[in-house]
Amino acid sequence: MSSTKLYLYTRFERFWHWAQATLIIILLVTGFEVHGTFTLFGFGSAVEIHNFCAWTWLVLYAFIVFWIITTGEWRHYVPTFVKMFEVIQYYVSGIFKGEPHPVPKSERVKHNPLQRITYLGIVSVLVPFQIITGFMYYLYNDWPTFGWAFDLSTIAILHTVGAFAMLVFFVVHVYMTTTGHHPFSHIKAMVTGYEELEAENK
């Protein structure tokens, strides 16, 4: 079947996508090492790398939010339940039968209803949750100055729970990149900016 290419992902969008992916991987690896899961960099180095990547991600996150708001990209993340059931049904069974996606990508619709809710949840809930718990963890020695009386182990557990949630999202996200009409078509799109679409979905 013939196909067409549509430019959907700008240079900055691709940059922050891969930058975030790299930072998340490093944060997960160093974070689990700090918790004693394995030894790779050594505890001291793992803490330093983790903190550096956390601050880097915080700055990047601020730029991403600013970019999404000022460019109008926020429209692609507005939740909608239109065809939500059809999309879920597609991923549960339709995709294995070779059925067409119920919500094909276009310049007006980059993300399907399920992606919108997921990405919005990540950006507005999970990432801020990790930032807050991580920041509290980072400032542990200054708690008395701020008058904070939290339980450190509770903060550590909450931050770890958030890390596992991020890991689950990461694994599912990587799997979903293989569900295009070619196993690496979605990954290629995030490298070149061009999404390859079936001609009938233009």
Rank of each mutant, 00 (worst) to 15 (best):
I88G: 06
Y137N: 09
P128W: 06
L6G: 11
T39M: 01
T22S: 10
Y90L: 12
F129M: 11
T37P: 02
A165R: 04
W18C: 05
T118G: 13
G180M: 01
W74Q: 01
A156M: 11
Y9R: 05
F129N: 07
H111Q: 11
G36N: 01
N51Y: 09
M190P: 02
M1F: 10
V87P: 07
F96S: 09
Y77L: 12
R75N: 10
W67E: 04
L28Y: 01
R11Q: 15
A165L: 12
H35A: 02
L8N: 09
D151P: 06
T22L: 09
A149E: 13
N51K: 10
K5W: 15
K83V: 01
P183F: 11
Y137R: 08
Y9M: 04
A165P: 02
L158M: 10
E73T: 03
F146G: 02
G42I: 00
A165N: 08
P104D: 05
L60C: 10
T80N: 12
E198K: 09
I88D: 05
W67T: 05
E86M: 06
I25W: 03
F85W: 14
T179N: 06
L23V: 09
M1W: 09
F146K: 08
K202N: 08
F38Q: 04
Y9G: 04
F81I: 05
F32L: 02
V82Y: 14
A46T: 00
W67Y: 13
T56C: 07
K97F: 12
E196S: 13
Y91E: 03
I187R: 00
P79K: 05
F184N: 05
Y7N: 15
H35G: 00
P100V: 06
K105L: 10
G147L: 09
V78P: 04
A46R: 00
N112F: 07
I25T: 04
E196Q: 14
F12L: 14
R11N: 15
I49A: 02
L8R: 14
M84L: 12
T56W: 02
W18N: 04
H35M: 02
P113A: 03
V161R: 04
A46V: 00
H186I: 05
S2T: 15
N112D: 11
L158W: 05
H76E: 14
